[in-house]
Simulated assay, not measured.
Amino acid sequence: MAKDHSHRNYSHTQKKARNGGGGRTPQDRARREFSQNFLVDRHAVEAVVKAAEPEGLVLEPGSGEGVLTLALAEAGAQVVGYEIDPRLAGRLASRTRGNPRIDVVRGDFTAARVPREPFAVVGNIPYSITSKIVDWCLRAHGLTAATLLTQREYARKRSGDYGRWSLVTVESWPWFDWRLGDTVGRESFRPVPSVDSAILRIERRARPLVQDRRSYQELVELGFGGVGGSVRASLRQRYDGVDAALAAAGVARDTVVGHVHPDQWVTLWGRLCG
Rank of each mutant, 00 (worst) to 15 (best):
A30P: 01
Q237N: 04
Y127F: 12
S234G: 01
E153A: 01
G185W: 09
A71I: 05
A71F: 04
V220S: 01
E74R: 09
Q27L: 14
A248T: 01
R42L: 03
V184G: 07
R158Y: 08
A249E: 06
R95P: 04
D212F: 04
V80S: 10
E33C: 00
A146N: 11
Q264Y: 01
G21I: 06
T150Q: 13
S6C: 09
D196L: 12
E153M: 06
V80R: 15
V58Q: 05
H43L: 09
H5Y: 14
G62C: 14
S159T: 03
I84K: 04
D254N: 05
R101L: 14
H261L: 10
A111Q: 15
R24T: 05
V170L: 03
V79F: 14
V49Y: 07
A111N: 12
N37R: 02
G258M: 05
Y216L: 00
R152W: 12
V266H: 00
I102P: 01
G225V: 06
E218Q: 14
S94G: 11
G226P: 02
K15V: 06
R214L: 02
S215Y: 07
V266A: 00
L222C: 05
R29H: 06
L143M: 15
R87A: 12
S194A: 15
G21S: 03
T25E: 09
L138W: 13
T110K: 12
G62T: 11
G90L: 08
I125L: 04
V266L: 00
Q78R: 15
P118T: 04
S215Q: 09
A245K: 01
L272N: 02
I129F: 08
G241H: 04
G226N: 01
D177Q: 12
I129T: 05
A206T: 15
V231F: 02
D263K: 02
V134N: 09
D177M: 13
T147A: 09
P126Y: 13
G90C: 04
A93D: 07
T110M: 14
A146R: 13
S172M: 00
G107Y: 14
L209Y: 10
V192N: 10
T69K: 10
A93I: 02
P174Q: 00
V260T: 05
